[in-house]
Design a protein around this nucleic acid. Structure first.
Lengths: 229, 229
DNA sequence: CGTTCACTTGACACTCCTCAAAAGGAGTGG
DNA sequence: CCACTCCTTTTGAGGAGTGTCAAGTGAACG
């Protein structure tokens, strides 16, 4: 699977950063305000002994499951403030990997029960939204929905209030988006191109997205607007 | 919400349920060991004020979300022992509906925190499995996976131990399965036909399913076996 | 200045959806 | 007991949307 090979390549290419590999000792990983993790750092792996819990302070983490034949499905993209590593049994049910420079913060196992409950409920709600998206939405609807979600999670305060436009850093690659939305890289790319040509979004430098028309983008996400080719 | 008359006959034949009128007062439905609810009874509705929590004692409940344009996605099929109505805010995030004659049991809001936590975690894990299924599995894989899940939840003790076959009552209609698996009725039907012709399953009276070859069915579910047309 | 890698674009194939009709069961009334 | 209807399921034919394969573009980096 090409996506996996990309991961390896990226890991190698970025190894100039401090060696915070996945085999990091628990102590150091848990230190309360953790180090800056480079992109494509594996935080923990599906199937291995249960990892500690973290809060994403800054950056982005993808949680994913992989089938035996290599097919990958991203379960969620987690932005600042949200937790990863909850709700496990004795082993991780999914892998977690950074998508950009990311700072994590260890969260004690004995966190407030109410906080844990809330976080679990939120994860469940998001998972159910993804189920709806994957089961019943078309490719353009999926991509539009994804952009709206990312805008909410990663949108900058620096917005054009006049047009209500929002700009955010697009942490996931086309491949990540494809694995999240149940599509292929090519389909994601085509949908983004169509959204650009329709004037609903703008992408600069490959990873800086501006939502120019939130109203219409929501319309596309809901299937109300057709998005002419 | 049409009542499926077919279910009446079959349910009656399968287990000697006491006869119960199909129109129930909410009070009686909420009493601790509730009455027998007929098929297609709406337990609670998405968007309305938060409902109490229930445990499914016997039968089957479908939880589902619906888009504004009517597209429906079943979030989960819930069998005996499992809970519905957890993890909400102030309003229901999905609807719940019985798929066969079903007995519910009210569960207090102040249930043991550990129990609630476990139930939430299980719901999350199942939701994530569904995400994997919807995002990355083909139609035959989805149908085979669904049958395996249903066999585990509803399989009878009366099994042919020799061939390890399992028989269960198929509560969901083809339409329900389609809405669960992100497919259409026709595709579900075609996949079931192919599974029957391949000798992996058998369906009697439309809703009594026997898994004849669990091994190969698992193979199909995992994408290992191709399921020749 | 060439290499690499992500992304884009095009042509084509295939799975699954749509539309349509037939088949199968269950209940109803003659 | 046999039509008759209603509804679900099955089956078929055709088409749309997305995947696959391949080539091309552009940016980052050595």
């Amino acid at each position: 699977m090409s996506v996996m090979l990309q991961m390896f390549a990226d890991c190698g290419a970025l190894s100039a950063f401090p060696p915070v590999s996945s085999t990091l000792s628990p102590q150091r990983a848990m230190s309360l305000a953790g180090p800056l993790l480079p992109p494509r750092t594996v935080v923990f792996l599906e199937g291995l002994a249960r990892s500690p819990q973290y809060r994403v302070v800054d950056g982005c983490v993808a949680t994913a499951q992989t089938l035996v034949d290599g097919r990958r499905q991203i379960i969620d993209l987690v932005g600042p403030g949200r937790l990863i590593g909850l709700g496990f049994g004795d082993q991780n049910r999914y892998s977690a990997e950074t998508l950009g420079f990311t700072r994590l913060e260890a969260v004690s196992e004995s966190m407030a029960q109410g906080e844990r409950d809330l976080a679990l409920s939120e994860m469940l709600a998001r998972s159910q939204s993804l189920v709806m998206l994957l089961g019943r939405k078309t490719a353009p609807e999926r991509v539009a929905s994804a952009l709206i979600d990312l805008a909410e999670q990663f949108g900058r305060a620096a917005r054009d209030r006049k047009r209500r436009s929002v700009t955010f850093h697009l942490y996931p690659t086309r491949g990540d988006l494809a694995d999240w939305l149940g599509l292929t890289i090519e389909t994601v790319s085509r949908c983004l191109t169509r959204l650009k040509k329709a004037g609903l979004i703008e992408i600069r430098h490959g990873d800086l997205v501006t939502v120019l028309d939130p109203e219409q983008l929501s319309g596309v996400a809901a299937g109300a607007r057709a998005l002419t080719n």
